[in-house]
């Protein structure tokens, strides 16, 4: 299997000479096509910064990030937007749906930005809505729907243009456990059936247990890496908790 994402000695510093904060100290890893990778770490461990750098929203101080063969750190400002809309899909903690648009239109937004034809848009939106079980709320505005439905809509928007990589930033953070499980199942399904590559940031061990592989971050460095392999979810969950306790117990406030 080929590498879809490769990070080489990525560093990210904030501040000036007197006071330097290393948000990412020195991180290298790669993600293979069809993998479901989770980055875990406590608040302030640099996981969101890392995700933003991969998403080209933030820039690295040094090092390289390759998406397939493309070095995104070398991309020019004017090409970034095009790169994002063609290669990446986003899922956010607070859904980030436009409340003036209907659910259907929110999903279609990613496709209109890529200037697809109306036939293609309609077909894809309905197909994906059926898959994510939000067909019956397509005509409603976000305000009329539940949190779970909103996040499924956000997930639909993230995957509808078939990006090479889906970046999810605490996608279950605003959901109750039932809805969270539902969303994770959906992501899992996408990953299994469509071989969609997913990179998810979370501090919730339960969410993390859905992954193929987990990277632990601490103070801007890779601390540990565990692979699920043939383990059951329960075993994997236990393993995650073990690592967290080594890491210093507290993973934030989610447990």
């Amino acid at each position: 299997m080929k590498n879809i994402l490769k990070l080489q000695n990525v560093q990210k510093y904030y501040g000036n000479e007197n006071q330097l904060t290393k948000a990412i100290d020195n991180i290298s890893f790669s993600v293979q096509e069809g993998e479901f990778v989770v980055i875990m770490g406590a608040s302030g461990s640099g996981k969101t910064t890392l995700l933003n750098c991969i998403a080209t929203i933030d820039t690295v101080s040094s090092g390289h990030i390759y998406l397939e063969e493309q070095d995104v750190t070398e991309l020019k400002e004017q090409n970034l937007a095009k790169f994002r809309r063609e290669n990446l899909g986003f899922i956010f903690q607070d859904f980030n749906l436009l409340d003036t648009l209907t659910i259907e239109e929110n999903i279609a937004l990613a496709l209109t930005i890529n200037q697809k034809s109306k036939e293609e848009i309609e077909e894809k939106v309905h197909k994906i809505a059926k898959e994510l079980n939000i067909e019956n709320i397509l005509k409603q505005v976000p305000y009329q729907t539940s949190g779970g439905q909103k996040q499924r809509c956000a997930a639909a928007r993230a995957i509808i243009h078939e990006p090479k990589l889906i970046l999810a930033d605490e996608p279950t953070g605003s959901l109750d456990s039932k809805n969270a499980t539902e969303l994770l199942e959906i992501l899992n399904n996408l990953n299994r059936k469509h071989h969609t590559t997913i990179l998810m940031v979370t501090h919730d061990p339960y969410s993390a247990s859905y992954a193929n592989r987990i990277l632990f971050l601490k103070d801007g460095n890779l601390f540990n890496e565990i692979i699920r392999g043939e383990k059951s979810k329960q075993e994997f969950y236990q393993e995650i908790l073990d690592v967290i306790s080594i890491l210093g117990g507290d993973m934030g406030n989610a447990i």
Binding site: A81, K82, F83, E86, L88, A110
Partner: peptide, 16 residues
């Protein structure tokens, strides 16, 4: 700001 920030993340150019 939130809306346009989302558009930016979805890959819309600054000029647009």
């Amino acid at each position: 700001r939130k809306n346009y920030d989302l558009l930016k993340k979805l890959g819309v150019e600054k000029e647009k």
